[in-house]
Amino acid sequence: MTSLSTFTLPDHTQLPDSDGKFVKNLQEHPQSILITDSIKPVLEQLHPDGQYCIGQDSGIYWRLTDPPEKGALSPDWFYVPNVPPTLEGKMRRSYVLWKEYVAPLIVIEFVSGDGSEERDKTPPSQGEVGKFWVYEQAIRVPYYAIYEVLKEQVEVYHLIDNTYQILQPNERGHYPIKPMGVELGIWQGWYQNAELPWLRWWDAQGNLLLTGEERAEVERHKRERIVEKLRTLSPEQLNALGIDAQMLD
């Protein structure tokens, strides 16, 4: 018999990293990439030491159960500040709260059904525990967002006095996530060859946070405009600027 003094709680390498379920729809994967790619420059500014973790459809173990996966939830997207992205040189298989003691700052769920699963407040005393209850009462995630592509909306909750309060959108229709200095909202446009009401980030001034590909496209257009302006100059004017006219051909 193992005594309590010698019992060691399992870590991420000893717990299941999948429950064998399929991703519920084909939009979830590109949606995760979109919000991860576009928020990366912000997180690099917030964490110049690189100490942050992003989970995409990854498990968060919040209690020890048998079987272990019963004590885990797999949010579609979450961000944890001030923790290393790797442990002992290995990528995390899951995020284990009893080993970290740091809750995610924000959790985002992508609704595939009617949204009841994401809003389920059932406590453990009444049977199968609900996601909403776990995020609010067990993990205590400061911000919880429920994104519904079919309804073209996102619902954001803020933990205040241990209770989720629904946030009201600002004048831009966005939801400020103040610790990150960004806003969350719906953007109608093309991404990954699909025009949908995508979930996206904006900065505190209301500027859309771009993906790496979008930033490269903006820079390309800037360069093209500069070249077009230079082509209106005479060879003498270009020479005065130290530019060879042949370089613009």
Results as ranks from 00 to 15, higher is better:
residue 8 T to A: 14
residue 10 P to N: 05
residue 13 T to W: 05
residue 13 T to D: 09
residue 14 Q to E: 15
residue 15 L to M: 12
residue 15 L to P: 08
residue 16 P to L: 09
residue 18 S to L: 06
residue 21 K to N: 10
residue 29 H to M: 06
residue 35 I to G: 01
residue 40 K to E: 13
residue 40 K to T: 14
residue 40 K to R: 13
residue 41 P to F: 07
residue 42 V to N: 00
residue 43 L to S: 01
residue 46 L to K: 13
residue 46 L to R: 12
residue 47 H to M: 03
residue 50 G to Q: 05
residue 51 Q to F: 05
residue 52 Y to S: 02
residue 54 I to S: 04
residue 57 D to S: 15
residue 63 R to V: 12
residue 70 K to W: 10
residue 70 K to L: 13
residue 70 K to F: 12
residue 71 G to Q: 03
residue 73 L to G: 06
residue 75 P to I: 10
residue 86 T to Q: 11
residue 87 L to D: 09
residue 88 E to A: 14
residue 89 G to W: 08
residue 92 R to P: 00
residue 92 R to A: 00
residue 96 V to G: 02
residue 99 K to L: 02
residue 100 E to M: 12
residue 101 Y to N: 09
residue 101 Y to D: 08
residue 104 P to T: 04
residue 114 D to T: 15
residue 115 G to H: 14
residue 117 E to C: 02
residue 120 D to R: 11
residue 121 K to L: 05
residue 124 P to G: 08
residue 126 Q to H: 12
residue 127 G to F: 10
residue 130 G to Y: 04
residue 135 Y to A: 02
residue 140 R to L: 01
residue 141 V to W: 01
residue 143 Y to H: 08
residue 143 Y to P: 07
residue 150 L to C: 09
residue 153 Q to D: 13
residue 155 E to L: 12
residue 157 Y to M: 08
residue 159 L to V: 12
residue 164 Y to K: 13
residue 165 Q to V: 15
residue 173 G to K: 08
residue 174 H to T: 12
residue 179 P to N: 04
residue 181 G to D: 08
residue 182 V to N: 09
residue 183 E to L: 02
residue 184 L to C: 06
residue 187 W to P: 03
residue 190 W to K: 09
residue 190 W to Q: 10
residue 192 Q to D: 14
residue 193 N to V: 12
residue 194 A to L: 13
residue 194 A to T: 11
residue 195 E to L: 09
residue 197 P to Y: 00
residue 201 W to D: 03
residue 202 W to K: 03
residue 207 N to K: 14
residue 212 G to P: 01
residue 214 E to F: 02
residue 217 E to W: 02
residue 219 E to R: 10
residue 222 K to F: 08
residue 224 E to Q: 15
residue 225 R to L: 14
residue 229 K to L: 14
residue 235 P to M: 10
residue 236 E to W: 05
residue 238 L to H: 09
residue 240 A to G: 08
residue 247 M to L: 14
